[in-house]
């Protein structure tokens, strides 16, 4: 049982990394990963919200939508719940944990439009995971997101000073660097028999 969970974690964390192997969550990825502190703030906010939203949507899906056979409402309900959740978290943090809010707060509104959060809630349903498995899956995905975004923010900080031709400066070189990192992550396919 434990190896099963561990393998789900590794699959979500490295092998099927949500950013580099599934392409999900790219908009904030290029926007926020310019410096380490922003990248760290963003990934901790994503971990926090992804976990909460996976729980809420999983419970909502299995105990409300399925018994009432309203599966078609899935998209609308999930995204509404996530938007509201982010709103509550932002207000809650602003009131009680001021320092945490100032470190993480600015990224919270960004997260509502973050594809990764919604994608995880859907994948967890499609894979028919139990609640425990989906928790592990969402933690793994969030850490995978954080790993790549922090790794990449270090690269981009170096890119600032590298001599690059004018038309490649900025986003193009970031994309090409991302493709090389994705190539490296491709090497993980098949780790412990985990295929894509």
């Amino acid at each position: 049982m434990v190896t099963n969970l561990l393998l789900i974690f590794i699959a979500a964390f490295i092998v099927n990394n949500i950013l580099l192997m599934r392409y999900i969550g790219l908009c904030p990825f290029f926007g926020v990963s310019t410096s380490f502190s922003t990248a760290f703030g963003m990934s901790s906010a994503v971990l926090f919200v992804m976990l909460l939203s996976t729980w809420v949507t999983w419970i909502l899906y299995h105990f409300v939508l399925i018994p009432l056979d309203l599966v078609f409402l899935r998209t609308a309900v999930f995204i509404l719940v996530i938007a509201a959740l982010v709103q509550f978290v932002e207000m809650f943090l602003k009131k009680n944990f001021k320092p945490l809010y100032s470190a993480m707060g600015i990224y919270l509104p960004l997260i509502t439009t973050n594809c990764a959060i919604l994608a995880v809630t859907f994948l967890v349903i499609d894979y028919k995971y139990s609640l425990l498995q989906s928790t592990i899956f969402s933690i793994g995905t969030a850490l995978g997101f954080g790993l790549v975004i922090i790794l990449f923010s270090a690269i981009r900080e170096r890119l600032e000073f590298a001599p690059i031709s004018r038309s490649f400066k900025g986003y193009p070189i970031a994309f090409i660097a991302a493709s090389l990192v994705a190539l490296a992550f491709l090497g993980f396919v098949g780790l412990f028999g985990l295929t894509l």
Partner: peptide, 15 residues
């Protein structure tokens, strides 16, 4: 595979 996609977008953006 994903690397190809990133590379292509990078080249498009450069152009």
């Amino acid at each position: 595979f994903p690397p190809g996609g990133f590379l292509l977008i990078g080249i498009f953006k450069a152009i």
